[in-house]
Write a protein that binds this DNA or RNA. Structure first.
Lengths: 218, 218, 218, 218
DNA sequence: TATGAATGAGGTTTCATTCAT
DNA sequence: AATGAATGAAACCTCATTCAT
């Protein structure tokens, strides 16, 4: 703990408090995920975090505040680094699209935590509109931008055909989302062969976007 | 009421009881949809159904039984008539696919009730595994069968190219599912232009499946 | 059914009604004995009696009425025939006492139903004072009279010594009562050897009452 | 409160908590005694103890736990000190027996609380077998041992005659038990003259046990 | 008489929240 | 900062009782 004792006491204490808060948020996520918002008990959160029953209320005045903080903390770092400029490289667009799609699957359909966030959001969204808005601005808008950008790039470079899809490029994302929910609900009894699924998805999308016949002409 | 008075009294009463049960199920669906499983109060269900507080318990021993009955009643009649033999006609497969997809959107993405069932299932699935299984057997399996059948038909008739998608034909369904959840959560503030969305989706899928080069007709 | 159809219809119906009532009382006794007054459910009584839920209320306006009727019906015929004049014979008093005591054991300590009545009375007595009074007048007073009579007879005939027991002759009954409760509570795990118990009891009482030294005279 | 302030705060708080628990147990005993197990309301217990409705549940997860704790707390200290070695002295056995019997009456037949414990045990025993067993091991076995010991001592010292009673010495206890229940149920309207009762009982037992003929000493 | 659907008071239990320490 | 006893609103559930048929 040399690094700690080297800091001024107040700052160190604040750091420890921040850690404690993080432990409570972690524990709360587990409980909410396991039992849903209403079903989760604050006492269980405290026990799981290894603190006394009253402490969660010290950091988060209400249960609803805790819930929002939990989701907020996971949503933002998970998705804000979505590179909207995958187009920076000079690679063929089909490859940009492929790698982007694989990354999406990796983050959502193959990530239990992200699935649980989605589940909680879908479940409690109507009672937590600010979280729904948050997700829209932090995640959905970014995803739409990415897919739109990729499709446009393909068209501009003559790699993809003209298509109304530029207006709703997030349609490409649909199967990713479906796979994520599928895994969360039916993964245990009727799990997906995710790799094969991804290849099929790519096969459909790339054939659906590519310019027909005129490969040579252009 | 002529039809009623023609029946023996006991039978008529049983009929009325069945109606009452239905009203309770309707009311319960509204409450569960509004507040989630744990948040819904049985007394509110009773009030909404216009019956006394104790009656829901008379028909359904536990809250969980009521919840299951509610979902079961909606899931089964909504989806069991999924025509798996859309292939009966002699129409071009692209048209079969188009009309099937539009029907899917009509039933799910444009149907508030179906969206709420999905939301409740996603939210409470982990606590009601039997409902999850029910949905799998009554809905998912049927949808997979339909999409697989259509894709195969297209390939067999030389209209679609060979594609790994036959193994995961439900990928086609992904955007339908995403649109449904989208409408349920963001419909109010960031509603979709569903018609344009559908056309884009069809555009992608049909191009993604059609046979290249062999377009002599066109 | 010849005997029945030979009666006027109204009377026959009343008889059937009386039988039904009896079946309800029997069923109610079982339930009260099994679960106590508050714990017994009227619906279970109805089911056990093979009638509809509402019928017990037709015969007995309140649950408490049913309870009283149940106990009353058992207490009275079980104990009212207590022969207070076992003294009619000319047998030695020690034999009168012996046979009376044995009869008491037979009726109480060896009779599950009588034990249950006692248990219910002890349990609910404070809330049903009229039953407690009934038991006093129908049972206790009679028993006191019997024991007093026997002891007095023994003294008068010079068989028993003078003893203050004539004032509280029911003391003789104490071990009978204790054996009954013992059987009801501990009979299953720590059952009594009732025959040996009775002999010991008789041994104590007869020696306790007999005239000392003067054995020879008689 | 000097003794308290001398302790660390946490320990003092724990001590107070223990007191509060005791107050709840006291209040619960009153309510159970007054209304029976099922009839007692936890809220009334709380009011009687002067605490909030939820506190009894904080200390005792279920009503049944509270009930068991109540009885356990009374049974054990009331009876575990039963001196099984009343034989230590050199007094004549008839005096040992007399004083022991009087003590039994004092503790049971003249003690309202002990009577209520017996009543509750008899009433609810079938639903709380562990309490019944507890009573057997903590009380009955001890009482049997005491009476057996006394009778044996009398025989060994030539004061009592040989008698089968050594096998069921608790028969001596019967009238004590009967008197206790009598007082609990009929004490109000038909109360016993307990002192006279005790003398009669002693008179019967001592004459019943004493050696015949050998009265020379006296 | 007899049925069983319907009522609603009332109980146990849970648990977010408060607060003295 | 942290603890955990204490509070009390509210929910589920039970069941005696009523009543239309």
């Amino acid at each position: 703990m040399a690094s700690r004792s080297g800091q001024p006491a107040a700052s160190r204490r604040r750091l420890e408090a921040e850690e404690r808060k993080g432990e409570i948020l972690d524990a709360a996520f587990e409980e909410f995920s396991l039992r849903g918002y209403a079903g989760a008990r604050l006492e269980d959160v405290a026990v799981r975090a290894g603190v006394a029953k009253g402490l969660p209320h010290f950091y988060f005045k209400r249960k609803s505040d805790l819930f929002c903080a939990v989701l907020r903390r996971i949503i933002i770092p998970t998705w804000t680094d979505l590179a909207e400029s995958a187009t920076a490289s000079d690679a063929p667009t089909r490859e940009v699209l492929s790698s982007t799609l694989r990354e999406m699957y990796r983050r959502l359909a193959a990530n239990k935590k992200a699935q649980e966030v989605m589940r909680l959001l879908i479940a409690e969204g109507p009672r937590f509109p600010e979280l729904v808005e948050l997700y829209y601005h932090e995640v959905l808008k970014r995803k739409i931008a990415i897919w739109t950008q990729i499709v446009k790039r393909g068209i501009q470079r003559g790699e993809f055909r003209e298509t109304p899809l530029v207006k709703h490029a997030q349609i490409i994302h649909g199967p990713v989302f479906m796979a994520a929910i599928w895994q969360a609900l039916w993964g245990k009894n009727h799990g997906l062969d995710l790799d094969a699924w991804i290849e099929s998805h790519l096969d459909l999308v790339l054939h659906g976007l590519e310019r027909k016949g005129g490969r040579t002409k252009r």
